[in-house]
Design a protein around this nucleic acid. Structure first.
Lengths: 225, 225
DNA sequence: AGTATGCCTGAGACTCAGTCCCGTTTCAAG
DNA sequence: CTTGAAACGGGACTGAGTCTCAGGCATACT
């Protein structure tokens, strides 16, 4: 496991990791032994394991940076919670597609390597934990237990879907689509993570003619928290 | 990887797996070699790997059964989608706590073994995929892409939280609390996964007082579309 | 009865990821 | 120039997972 401190972006660690991804993408993950990979990265096998912990973790090394960035962003945020997590999600997206070539190469590598896709799930879950922790911290009183973790899971899911869309067709609109989807998702959880400083709202309710009074009241109560 | 067909519940495979969990919980996961584990399960090392694929997978062997059960349940469901996924989630919960001793022993084992907790994330994700696939299939037309996957993630998150609560204090009310939380979660996504046979809806939209007319109209159009 | 066929098993050799230890290099502080 | 810490390379070692081969055991066929 890589327990090293987060390294700056132009760091030799990051460069070595992208070199590793390139080599693995070109030569195949299973076919490449740790020794060969270390050679291609210009270091000994010992140093490789010391720096990156494992053959799997080297593929996701930059996620450590993105994750640290996200944590800092959320810690400093003074927005309403909904906007802060939306900004954070978009920031992670930006960071992951900053180097488009590297992003595509990793995607290719993942597509052809089931074990790495499984590892990706573990990495991804760290973001979920960070989001959920932040949301628990800032949730309005009375928020149910499941809301932060459900929203956090949704954020990551929406982000991943947007990333996949971006990878399929290099659409510059992927980011704005992501922002739109995030807003819609967060709106589902609005009563708990909205802006408590500006609580005035206008409620517009549309009811089916056959809706019973109970249904109307229940829905209103949920919206109004 | 275990690619064997789903085995019946009293099967020697299942019994061997629970024996394995017991042994690992008592002797420690890392300290137990595959050979020792196979001995404790009454089979050779070769047979162990043939039957269970890996040392990690043997701990989650029964999830294959629960997952198959869930898939069948969803395939046969003719409820509204929201109720079907709620029933499915509760069914999985029931299955996992049916043998309370085994559930607790696995929980203890996971608590002390980080690598198994990471593996658990991968296993858990399979449920997410099953839910999301079903929800995509039955979603009303016009449902945004992110909704099924976000709801699926939320279902799993709520389930896991309920399971953890049940493990902490053996509360019989854990199940009813789970049902309540699921209903509240699903209500957040109601317009897309409600009952299309009874299309009456209750749409409640809350806007900031400063929202422009365009924003209000756009949001309403999305809801009513 | 004898035999052929297919399946599951156990045994052992083999590859390779990851750990550990030890001696060497590097480099900055004194 | 000396010293001490930190990174490095080399190489031995453990253990997971794969693979091959040979034997046991049942059912089916003649």
């Amino acid at each position: 496991m890589n327990t090293s401190l987060p390294a700056p972006n132009g760091s030799p660690t990051v460069e070595a990791a992208t070199a590793a991804i390139r080599h693995l993408a070109e030569h195949g993950y299973e076919k490449t032994t740790a020794g060969e990979l270390a050679d291609a990265m210009g270091m000994s096998r010992s140093t490789f394991f010391r720096r990156f912990g494992s053959k799997e973790d080297v593929v996701f090394a930059d996620h450590d940076l993105a994750l640290a960035h996200l944590e800092q962003l959320l810690a400093e945020a003074d927005d309403p919670a909904g906007e802060a997590v939306a900004r954070g999600t978009v920031a992670v997206m930006h960071r992951l597609i900053r180097d488009a070539d590297a992003a595509r190469q990793r995607s290719e590598l993942l597509k052809r390597t089931p074990s790495l896709r499984e590892r990706e799930l573990v990495i991804t879950h760290r973001y979920e934990r960070v989001f959920a922790g932040y949301l628990v911290r800032v949730a309005s009183p009375g928020t149910p237990d499941w809301a932060p973790v459900a929203l956090a899971a949704g954020l990551v899911a929406v982000h991943n879907a947007a990333l996949r869309r971006w990878l399929r067709h290099d659409d510059a609109r992927a980011i704005s689509a992501l922002e739109r989807d995030l807003a819609a998702l967060i709106a589902r959880f609005a009563p708990w993570f909205g802006d408590e400083d500006r609580p005035s709202r206008v409620v517009v309710a549309a009811f089916d003619a056959e809706a019973s009074s109970e249904e109307v009241l229940r829905a209103l109560r949920e919206q109004l928290g």
